[in-house]
Design a protein around this nucleic acid. Structure first.
Lengths: 236, 236
DNA sequence: TCAAAAGTGTTCGGACTACACCCATGA
DNA sequence: TCATGGGTGTAGTCCGAACACTTTTGA
């Protein structure tokens, strides 16, 4: 701390907006704070950045502590730095959002942190500016998912097209034509049809698909037009 | 610093990637560092975040110190937090990028900071991870400008369509058909034709246009298709 | 009069949307 | 057999891309 010693230190925290999809609805993982201030109030999972870890490492460590998961999709969202966002100290928080397969998440950890999954329209009032963070993350997810095949990160290995469609419909709070939807998705060439069917949601059963991971990596940044009339949706 | 006193402090800096357009080429404003470490080396304009200002305020103040400009387009880019990005102390830097009308920028300030405008393909080696920051900002600009009419922020009040086209062509390092380009831009309804012409670049002269600011604000988030074949360009 | 840049229209193909019926199955 | 959700094809429209000639005027 030699050279810039006259600078007042500001603490740096990470907060994680963790999305999961249970096959029907998009959900958010929240915890009940175990420490003061704001003990017992709902909050995003977060923590401080250790001097010896980068921001990305810190975010991954925090996610792992809560979910047990590594190597999941995670992206830096925004740095939140209003002066009084934390009424106690001056803390800048770098928010990350993660998309996880809800089934891989380790249940037992949730008890330790008093974690629960919330549907997006039933999110309680959160501490500090965490509701703002969640809103920002939702907008970013809507925006990005309209252009890039990012939502596969939320799905299990095998999934059906009707599942995929209900995920998109939930995120955009709209209803899409299923013929157009499946044609569009299949035309990306990212999906590989399986021989077996999911029979939980219908008598006829829906074919499973898996992601073609090579094409997925190649095409991830291509602009797709996954959503009809994106202009008309409130994306930002 | 009462409640989280056990946390090691990390300093927070801001760095600004400042883009300007001189009518022909997109440029970047860099300064020559006046302080150690890395004295005299080229660098982005930056500074520390004061305890009493938000990140956005800090970024605006830094921009103003160098350019004299207020109220310009500025957006948070990314928080850079590798452990050894600054070989001295542990400093996390929040990068912002700004788009300014190069003509409004106050020349005299540049002397104070030894600032200079650099063409994008002639950027020198910068301190720390500043070259990474510039690359990230360029990609973000390409990405965003393909979908939103953001580049008007770089133009003076009155501009011509050929100027606009050369700006786009510079950013995407491509050549666009001028018939399609002007039709597309005019179809946004954002441009208001003036009666006078710019005669600096041609004998015939090109009509000036101004931005319809109301429509611009309304339509800013609409998805436009400003660039032909965005898939084929390296946008991310 | 010539060189240099501005301005403008049409045709074609591909992509998106709207729309309705049959299929498979478990109850 | 019937109710439920899965799966598929087509026609029309719109949008974007390709493409070439005329206009203006200063030198």
């Amino acid at each position: 701390m030699a050279k810039y010693a006259h600078q007042a230190p500001i603490l740096i925290a990470i907060d994680c907006i963790i999305f999961g999809f249970d096959g029907e609805r998009l959900k958010l993982l929240l915890i009940q704070r175990g420490i003061e201030p704001e003990m017992h109030k709902w909050s995003l999972m977060g923590g401080f950045v250790n001097t010896k870890e980068s921001l990305d490492e810190a975010a991954n460590n925090i996610l792992k502590k809560l979910t047990g998961l590594e190597g999941v999709y995670m992206e830096q969202l925004h740095a939140f730095g209003a002066v009084y966002r934390d009424p106690g100290d001056r803390i800048v928080s770098i928010a990350y959002f993660a998309l996880i397969d809800i089934h891989k998440y380790e249940q037992q950890l949730s008890h330790e942190y008093h974690a629960e999954w919330f549907e997006l329209d039933k999110i309680p009032s959160l501490i500090f500016d965490h509701n703002d963070m969640v809103d920002t993350a939702r907008k970013k997810l809507r925006y990005k998912a309209a252009l890039h095949p990012i939502l596969f990160e939320l799905l299990p290995e095998k999934f059906t097209i009707p599942q995929l469609q209900s995920l998109y419909e939930g995120i955009y709070d709209s209803v899409f034509d299923k013929r157009n939807f499946s044609r569009k998705l299949l035309s990306t060439g990212l999906l590989i049809k399986q021989k077996d069917k999911d029979k939980l949601n219908s008598k006829k059963g829906a074919f499973y698909y898996v992601l073609d991971k090579n094409k997925y990596k190649e095409n991830f940044h291509a602009f797709l037009n996954l959503i009809p009339n994106p202009d008309h949706l409130q994306l930002v």
